[in-house]
């Protein structure tokens, strides 16, 4: 769905992302994993066109001329949801559909369908984000991301701000949602366990560079750097 060729990101004198080649197949699930400052979030933000990058980014086989058109085929979920505080949950979910002048029937139908998928009753949807629990906010954020039925869903630490029980419940639900919808999913997390739970492929990053990518099993059996072994060991130790 996405392919990157020699894509790099520079913030002033800091290199946030070294020249990187990476492809995301349609329907695949990928987890970008690494410690803080490894460039995993930057890489995700490149895919949403939120940071200026050099190199070639292709979407659905062609280079990107109009980011807005690409974004309409993306869903983007961040830690704590990124919901607009001045809009109700419903308004947050419907904002783009209204902007694109969908019919009222079509909007209602799609919203009802998504509410069922993420398991959110009508009542919290009428509230403002500040009146919702963390778990509810993330469910609304996922509804908003899925509203236009995008091809790709980008998730930046979507579970980090939640308590353990909510996190476990939402993680299970999210996995089944994504497998049922067969979206291309890219997830950023600092937890290998979470990465393994969600994704077929793990991309381990450090200091703006990809260290190794593959399944957790491959990373364990044939680590191509001591860092890979250390990172896995550190996660296991906890």
């Amino acid at each position: 769905m996405f392919s990157l060729e020699q894509v790099a990101v520079q913030f002033g004198t800091t290199t946030a992302l070294q020249p990187t080649d990476l492809a995301f197949e349609p329907g695949s699930t990928t987890a970008l994993v690494g410690p803080s400052g490894s460039g995993k979030s930057t890489l995700l933000r490149v895919l949403a066109g939120l940071v200026p990058a050099t190199g070639l980014v292709q979407f659905a086989g062609s280079s990107i001329a109009d980011w807005r058109a690409v974004r309409l085929r993306l869903g983007y979920v961040i830690q704590d949801g990124g919901l607009f505080p001045h809009l109700t949950a419903t308004e947050n979910v419907e904002i783009m559909a209204r902007e694109l002048h969908w019919s009222r029937d079509r909007i209602d139908q799609r919203r009802t369908e998504l509410a069922r998928i993420v398991g959110l009753p009508d009542e919290p949807l009428a509230r403002y984000p500040a009146e919702l629990s963390g778990g509810q906010r993330q469910r609304v954020s996922i509804m908003r991301a899925l509203m236009l039925d995008p091809d790709v869903v980008l998730l930046d630490e979507p579970l980090s701000a939640l308590d353990p029980i909510t996190r476990a419940r939402l993680a299970t639900e999210l996995r089944s949602i994504f497998s049922a919808l067969s979206k291309t999913v890219v997830l950023v997390t600092h937890s290998l366990r979470e990465a393994q739970f969600f994704a077929e492929r793990i991309v381990l990053m450090r200091r703006g560079q990809i260290v190794q990518s593959g399944s957790l099993e491959q990373l364990e059996r044939t680590p191509n750097d001591a860092f890979v072994t250390d990172f896995i060991a550190a996660e296991r130790a906890l």
Partner: peptide, 25 residues
């Protein structure tokens, strides 16, 4: 910044973002 990122990632145009997100906030 996270709200502005969310607004941009949704695909809101500049004017729509100004009208629906930036100015109300």
């Amino acid at each position: 910044a996270s709200l502005l990122d969310s607004a941009d990632a949704l695909g809101l145009s500049r004017m729509a973002r100004l009208r629906r997100i930036d100015l109300p906030l």
